[in-house]
């Protein structure tokens, strides 16, 4: 089994780079300081390619491919910043803002939100599609945490961290399409969940104000993510 890992050389935005064959375009780009926007992806969790922010163009491939799940290949020529891509990325963000209720000025994570900062970085100046204004609940039944569905972007980071890292699998997604919603256990109140260990991992990986800790001032609502690379590294070592 122990075959040596092969190294592939490729071009990203006309720069020569190289990476192991089991690495993704996103990983190689990051190693080389090339910025590709992401939202659903979080290092340490299984990538799912769902938010479509990280789409890139590859010469000779007609489809756009998500950098977070696409493995590098020899001779690939990847383009990450074309005008078309930037337009699509802004539209993805606009759709996310229109989907639920995002009013940053009154949000608990105002200033520490990945969706918000992504909008700034990618130059999203306005939302051209109408807001949908759905009526969604806020569940504050957990003694320490709150889930506010109005801010959820369905990235499923919480689902993955709770399953893959904590091993509790308290979260999952119910329904489908526009009616999808994250749930705890049998769609019961989080506070009544039999499986939640209150570890707080989901809160820390949530990119938005959908999951937050009770009773903290906004300035302390920074999400702590250092645990994730650490835990995944420790587990890899043990294998």
């Amino acid at each position: 089994m122990n075959q040596p890992v092969r190294v592939k050389t490729l071009k990203i935005d006309d720069r020569d780079v190289s990476g192991r064959e089991d690495e993704t375009i996103l990983e190689i780009a990051r190693q080389n300081g090339i910025f590709i926007p992401t939202l659903c992806n979080l290092q340490g969790l299984t990538p799912i390619g769902a938010c479509r922010l990280c789409l890139v163009e590859i010469k000779g491939v007609s489809r756009l491919l998500p950098a977070c799940v696409t493995r590098v290949e020899e001779g690939m020529e990847v383009y990450t910043q074309s005008e078309r891509l930037q337009k699509y990325r802004r539209m993805v963000l606009e759709l996310l803002f229109s989907e639920r209720n995002h009013i940053c000025s009154v949000c608990v994570v105002n200033g520490h939100c990945e969706l918000q900062s992504m909008a700034q970085v990618l130059g999203m100046t306005h939302v051209s599609v109408p807001y949908r204004f759905p009526r969604l609940p806020v569940d504050a039944s957990h003694e320490r945490f709150v889930v506010d569905h109005n801010r959820c972007i369905l990235c499923t980071r919480c689902v993955r961290v709770c399953d893959e890292i904590e091993g509790a699998h308290t979260w999952d997604v119910m329904g489908r399409g526009i009616d999808s919603r994250v749930i705890t256990d049998l769609n019961q109140a989080w506070g009544e969940s039999e499986t939640c260990t209150s570890c707080g991992k989901c809160v820390n990986v949530c990119p938005t104000g959908a999951l937050f800790e009770k009773g903290k001032p906004v300035s302390e609502r920074l999400k702590k993510r250092q645990f994730l690379p650490y835990l995944t590294m420790m587990r890899e070592e043990r294998r």
Binding site: L95, L96, S98, V173, G175, R176, G177, I178, S180
Partner: peptide, 21 residues
């Protein structure tokens, strides 16, 4: 398409609804 979208990716989940509207 709106009622059959699985809801995983943003363009289809939200985009089809906006188009329908």
């Amino acid at each position: 398409c709106v009622s059959e979208s699985c809801g995983k990716c943003v363009p289809c989940r939200v985009g089809t609804v906006q188009m329908y509207n």
